[in-house]
């Protein structure tokens, strides 16, 4: 099989993932898109490993380490761990906020129009909107 097929497929997969990450609002769908991108990379790893080992067989007949495929196994394992943690975070956020929309999780945003230091002290006096909800949820 020509190398172009898996590479093009992986590029398509990756672009789908990127689109998902950039465009989806739901955090779970964003995580799924990240998985797509990871799998595109995995596909690349396997495809290039197979292609390289075939090309090298003539020169080194006994080289059968297949480091690319081994690396893929690691990536899958790590991706599984990562998605586990990611889903746990999403779950916790959902329990606290009642939503998992990435658009609405904007606590790190700078205040609009707050251009000097006095706002910082004013802000410190008022509890952040999230913290109140958090307290309710844990109670």
């Amino acid at each position: 099989m020509h190398l172009a097929y898996p590479v093009v497929l992986s590029a398509l997969l990756f672009c789908t993932g990127v689109y998902g990450v950039l465009a989806r609002r739901n955090a779970i769908l964003v995580l799924m898109s990240v998985e797509l991108m990871l799998n595109a990379v995995n596909l690349n790893l396997v495809a290039f490993d197979a292609w390289l080992s075939r090309a090298a067989q003539a020169a080194f007949p006994h080289d059968g380490l297949h480091s690319g495929q081994a690396l893929t196994l690691f990536t899958i394992a790590i991706a599984a761990a990562e998605i586990g943690i990611g889903l746990a975070i999403v779950l916790a956020v959902y329990r606290n906020r009642g939503t998992a929309d990435v658009d609405r999780l904007r606590d790190t945003a700078e205040d609009r129009g707050g251009s000097d230091g006095t706002d910082a002290t004013a802000r410190a006096g008022v509890p952040a909107p999230g913290s109140g909800e958090k307290a309710e949820a844990s109670a």
């Binding site: 990450v21 950039l22 990435v102 658009d103 904007r106 790190t108 945003a109 700078e110 251009s115």
Partner: peptide, 15 residues
């Protein structure tokens, strides 16, 4: 103040 405008809090914008 100019740089702070970019801090929207939306992850997707950052990405």
């Amino acid at each position: 103040a100019a740089v702070r405008r970019a801090q929207t809090g939306n992850l997707q914008t950052y990405v």
